[in-house]
């Protein structure tokens, strides 16, 4: 029964958008190739936050035309690498492991950050860069096919589960998921360790911020304990299924026409930028 819903007031943007920060000199490397497809918006999000990035084809990295050592942030963006064949992210992870594994380990040993979004998270999981309890980088989690058996594209609400460098200052993320395989699964022991070490970064929740409890569509894929993203044990790697980079502007949000109308009635304008940008600002904050 649809009843008239109260207008739940909730922040739609940081109360006062931070002044445009100075650009930091640390650079990001965004991987591309073989069907990765979100490099453009990921680069735009970082640029907006104040970090310049180079989009580099994996083959140029393998050929040695570019070096990981020149970068402080490595991003595995969203996409459909190898068409999800042999399991989402698996083939691209193999390509990396079979070609540039040593360089990557060296990068991981430094004070560097790694971000994987959607297909990027799937690649991180297959490489064992998350959860990475130790330097063996064993595969401990799987992003299985969604319970619904197919790709699902819709906006989801996320709640930070722990405060860390990525989630600092974030109360809520509201952005799209768009994946066929985001159903996080692992052994009970692994799950226990992930929780103990406060490695859950974001969980799916309802609009009122209460847990999704596995209920569709709030938890869109059946992920265990509503987990949408986790960090590595040392906290320097974040993998998440939802796409904050696809909703940087308020006008990218599913419900923005309503928010804008509510704002108009109150005689205020809707902020330009959405709260989702905070993840990227936190990265820049880490290096500043």
């Amino acid at each position: 029964m649809a009843t008239v819903r109260r207008n739940i007031r909730r922040p739609v943007a940081a109360p006062k958008a931070a002044a445009v920060p100075d650009r930091i000199c640390e650079r990001a490397l965004i991987l591309s190739g073989y069907g990765i497809n979100s490099e453009m918006e990921t680069q735009a999000a970082l640029a907006r936050a104040g970090m310049d990035a180079d989009t580099v084809h994996i083959n140029d990295l393998i050929a040695g035309d570019r070096s990981l050592a020149d970068y402080r942030l490595l991003v595995f963006p969203g996409g459909f690498s190898y068409g999800d064949d042999t399991g989402a992210g698996n083939a691209y992870a193999n390509r990396i492991r079979n070609n540039i594994w040593d360089d990557l380990q060296e990068f991981m040993d430094g004070d560097n950050l790694v971000l994987g979004i959607c297909n990027g998270f799937q690649i991180l999981a297959n490489l064992g860069l998350v959860p990475a309890f130790d330097r063996t980088y064993a595969r401990e989690i799987a992003l299985m096919p969604n319970r619904g058996g197919r790709l699902e594209c819709r906006f989801v609400t996320l709640k930070p589960a722990n405060e860390n460098l990525w989630t600092k200052g974030i109360e809520r993320i509201y952005c799209p998921v768009s994946h066929g395989e985001g159903n996080l699964s692992c052994s009970p022991e692994t799950l226990k360790k992930i929780k103990q070490k406060k490695m859950v970064a974001f969980t799916y929740c309802r609009e009122d911020m209460s847990p999704a409890d596995g209920e569709y569509p709030y938890n869109p894929n059946g992920s265990v304990e509503d987990i949408a993203g986790i960090t590595s044990a040392n906290g320097r790697v974040l993998g998440m299924m939802p796409h904050p980079e696809r909703a940087m502007e308020c006008s990218n949000l599913y419900d923005w026409p309503l928010l804008r109308e509510q704002a108009r009635r109150e005689g205020r304008a809707l902020p330009q930028e959405s709260l989702n940008m905070q993840i990227f600002r936190n990265i820049v904050g880490y290096f500043s």
């Binding site: 497809n37 969203g78 790709l151 768009s178 909703a247 599913y254």
Partner: peptide, 22 residues
């Protein structure tokens, strides 16, 4: 159909294939 189709990639979603709370 709509939800099987990625309609947010490239980050340009303004008014999409389904709209409103309903």
């Amino acid at each position: 159909i709509t939800i099987q189709y990625d309609h947010t990639v490239q980050g340009g979603h303004v008014l999409g294939p389904v709209q409103g709370k309903g």
